[in-house]
Amino acid sequence: MANNYHQLSLKDTFSDCKDMFVDDVPSFFQLLEQHFDISLFIPQTFYNAFYQHLGRKRDYPLTGFLSALILQKIFSIPTVSLLILLLNLCKELRDFCGFSKVPDPPLFTRFKLDFADHLDLMFQQMVDYTEPICQQIDSSLAQILTFDTS
């Protein structure tokens, strides 16, 4: 009996992920949790600035704000108000971000204003990491994505 082997490709994996994103959102969050550790991209200076800014324990984790803002872009959520509404309605989204309660709109605004330089540095590190992967999937699309993230 002959064995049928199937060569996995990055493009097939990307397509499967895209299908899962559309058809099965809880599985999409599980996939992100298994394969994407946002803390690897956060510079130590960002952690220091975020947790020393107030001089007391924060109610919301740094990774929570960052995860929420990244998911806002992934899901094409146009406003922070709509993001907050979805966080309130979707337990999987809230859990993925690590929020036991959802931050108010002014907190998101202050976060983006107070830590703009740190966010820029972190996203540049993410581009440096993901750009070679995108090149393997589709080089012409990778150029557009790299330009868009800047």
Rank of each mutant, 00 (worst) to 15 (best):
C134R: 07
K101W: 00
P61I: 06
V102S: 06
L107D: 03
T79Q: 03
S76A: 11
D59N: 13
S100T: 03
L89I: 00
S81G: 11
G55H: 03
D120G: 09
F41S: 11
I38L: 05
V127M: 02
T130S: 12
Q135T: 12
D23C: 14
Q30C: 04
T109Y: 01
Q44K: 14
Q30A: 04
T79P: 03
L87C: 07
F50E: 11
M126S: 09
Q72S: 10
P105W: 01
I38K: 02
S81D: 08
D114V: 06
M126D: 12
L89Q: 13
H35T: 12
C90K: 14
H35P: 10
M126G: 02
F115Y: 00
L113M: 02
P132F: 07
F29Y: 10
D24V: 07
S39C: 07
L107E: 09
F108K: 08
L121W: 01
A68Y: 04
H53M: 12
F41A: 12
L71H: 01
P26T: 05
L31I: 09
D37Q: 03
G55Q: 05
C134A: 09
L71G: 07
I42P: 08
P26S: 01
I42D: 08
F46E: 13
F75R: 12
M126A: 06
G64H: 02
Y129Q: 11
F50P: 10
L31S: 15
T79R: 04
F123R: 14
P26I: 03
K101Q: 06
F29I: 04
C90N: 15
F41T: 09
G55W: 02
L32A: 09
N48K: 02
N88R: 00
F99S: 00
Q72H: 10
L82C: 13
E92H: 04
S27W: 08
Q125F: 14
